[in-house]
Design a protein around this nucleic acid. Sequence first.
DNA 1: CAAAATAAATTTGTATACACAGTTGCCTTT
DNA 2: AAAGGCAACTGTGTATACAAATTTATTTTG
Lengths: 237, 237
Amino acid sequence: MAKGVRIGAGTLASLRVVGEDPGLLSDQIRNALTDEIASGRLPAGAALDEQDLADRFGASRTPVREALRQLSVSGLVEMRPRRGVIVTRLTPEQIMDMFETTAEIEAMCVRLATYRITPLERSRLLEMHEQSKKLVDRRDIDGYDAFNTRFHEAIYLATHNGFMAEQAVNIRARLKSFRRTQLRQADRIIRSRDEHDGIMTAIAQGDGEEAARRMRAHMLNAASALGAYFSGLDPEN
Amino acid sequence: MAKGVRIGAGTLASLRVVGEDPGLLSDQIRNALTDEIASGRLPAGAALDEQDLADRFGASRTPVREALRQLSVSGLVEMRPRRGVIVTRLTPEQIMDMFETTAEIEAMCVRLATYRITPLERSRLLEMHEQSKKLVDRRDIDGYDAFNTRFHEAIYLATHNGFMAEQAVNIRARLKSFRRTQLRQADRIIRSRDEHDGIMTAIAQGDGEEAARRMRAHMLNAASALGAYFSGLDPEN
DNA sequence: CAAAATAAATTTGTATACACAGTTGCCTTT
DNA sequence: AAAGGCAACTGTGTATACAAATTTATTTTG
């Protein structure tokens, strides 16, 4: 049996409590597809032919189907019984809803985190934030994007609520493909860091409500910076 | 081939935007297992033998495996590669985390709902709340439990954010087996309705923050009413 | 007699086979 | 020529088959 396919680890493995087993073909395929959908390489609406995928991964349809069914629970793909699977196509309204939910959940996380963060965690978070200045100065968008994810995930962890952190990571992962283009907006990266700064200040002062307000605004700013990406979205939120 | 198994619809189909196809064996099995796990008929830690399940549902292992993989994404079961599937066993800490997250998410929902609920929706919600008095008076625990779910789901819907509502429903579904016993606590059902009353008042006054505070307290009360229940026992179930 | 080693028996993971629903395209009919 | 219908085809859904790994039972050994 020739199996010539080597597949990278999952994107959000960092926060998962139990690591995925990379050995299972179904899991490899699921991780690979998750990545391709989140990155946009597999665009919304793309048909996912089981045999095609099986061939592509050098496997049979069985593990492909198992992977697809898992992705359908995550919401990344849509299964139409006996009519095939497609990458989930979201309406602008659904995307808006997701961004709003993310904003609220992140606000909720940072509020709790403000009250529970340990000195060590706060120190590390501040360190990360300080270093991000360099990335902004040299307009390193990819670098800042990577930092941004780590920054937000550090806040999730500071809630000291593993379940909440997992929820936040999952939603964030699902919005990845939209966030991608958002930072390329002219000076968005600069304002993003300024907003982070305000959040850090509120955390330092132990004002969870203020941190939450700032985080909510931060997320909604990011969303509306993306607004140009879709046509005809209402700009107020 | 004989297929003598008739399986009921999913428990939370009411809020799903697209209805599941009951025709697919994998889906039937998934729904049935979801129900059995949520209801506690399949206790935490129970081993889910693929062949056993296949026999029980009069199917082959293929649709059983597909169902199990979906359940693993929902978090209801745990897949240990090559070592079988078990009903997820949660630590007390994980359960606490889930209850806290639920409390925060419900609070978030009711805050948004307060600002967005339509007069019609508010009227219907109030109607439901009024009628729940009868259930309390005659100590109809099952009836109140059913009402309670509808009450909370009505609030989710009043957020006018489909994604957020879906998140809330999913978490609620996952905690179902724990909520079950909670209402049997002496006068919990009475206090529950009193707390609903406070929430309704805050909504009526358009005070979202107050509604959120009351909802958070309401959920945490319910959790701690349950806390006594499982603090003493850890082995099976 | 206990513990390690080994063999048998389950059980999982994947591949293949097959039936049938859904789609496509050609042909008939008006 | 457009609409409808029929046939062939494609692709999904499920069953069965087989290989590899884990668990259980048995035997061997100190």
